[in-house]
Measured scan of single mutants.
Amino acid sequence: VSVELPAPSSWKKLFYPNKVGSVKKTEVVFVAPTGEEISNRKQLEQYLKSHPGNPAIAEFDWTTSG
């Protein structure tokens, strides 16, 4: 189950709350306009370098507050 949070234009930000008793931590995933899922800052940096014209990296908020 995921919750969609505010994201930069043409992107989606999905929040996957951890299940009770789960060892997996809460996860935030950005979905690029191409449909590619980005789950960490390093991936995001690589994606933005190879896909010019996207929002600046500073516009991506990895917190769950939206």
Score class of each variant (00 low, 15 high):
60 F>L: 01
31 V>D: 00
9 S>I: 12
48 L>Y: 02
63 T>Q: 07
11 W>H: 01
58 A>V: 10
26 T>W: 15
17 P>L: 14
17 P>R: 12
55 P>D: 03
9 S>A: 14
43 Q>F: 05
13 K>H: 01
30 F>D: 00
16 Y>R: 13
10 S>C: 15
6 P>C: 09
40 N>T: 12
66 G>N: 11
16 Y>M: 08
45 E>V: 11
64 T>W: 14
12 K>S: 06
45 E>H: 09
59 E>S: 07
23 V>P: 13
17 P>Y: 15
29 V>R: 08
43 Q>T: 08
53 G>N: 08
66 G>E: 11
37 E>M: 15
15 F>N: 05
50 S>R: 10
6 P>M: 07
36 E>V: 07
44 L>G: 00
55 P>A: 06
59 E>D: 09
42 K>G: 10
33 P>N: 02
25 K>Q: 12
53 G>V: 04
21 G>S: 09
25 K>W: 14
10 S>I: 05
59 E>V: 06
14 L>D: 02
45 E>R: 13
1 V>W: 10
29 V>E: 02
39 S>M: 12
30 F>M: 02
46 Q>W: 10
32 A>Q: 00
51 H>K: 03
21 G>I: 07
19 K>P: 12
27 E>Y: 15
18 N>L: 10
6 P>A: 08
36 E>F: 04
43 Q>P: 01
42 K>M: 13
66 G>L: 12
55 P>G: 05
40 N>D: 12
13 K>C: 06
21 G>N: 10
43 Q>N: 06
65 S>G: 12
32 A>T: 06
11 W>D: 02
28 V>M: 05
25 K>R: 13
9 S>K: 15
15 F>R: 04
33 P>T: 02
58 A>I: 09
44 L>T: 00
65 S>P: 15
5 L>I: 05
25 K>L: 10
18 N>Y: 14
32 A>H: 00
6 P>K: 08
34 T>C: 05
47 Y>G: 00
49 K>E: 11
52 P>F: 04
9 S>N: 14
33 P>H: 02
33 P>A: 03
53 G>A: 05
52 P>Q: 05
36 E>L: 04
61 D>A: 05
43 Q>M: 11
38 I>V: 07
44 L>F: 01
6 P>F: 07
38 I>P: 00
45 E>I: 12
41 R>L: 13
64 T>A: 13
42 K>F: 14
10 S>G: 15
22 S>M: 09
58 A>F: 10
49 K>A: 13
43 Q>D: 13
16 Y>P: 03
25 K>H: 14
31 V>T: 04
64 T>P: 12
23 V>R: 10
24 K>R: 13
65 S>L: 10
6 P>W: 09
7 A>G: 07
62 W>S: 01
57 I>C: 05
5 L>T: 05
42 K>S: 12
23 V>Q: 14
57 I>T: 05
22 S>N: 12
64 T>H: 12
17 P>A: 10
52 P>N: 04
14 L>F: 15
26 T>R: 12
52 P>S: 05
46 Q>E: 13
26 T>G: 15
52 P>Y: 04
34 T>H: 02
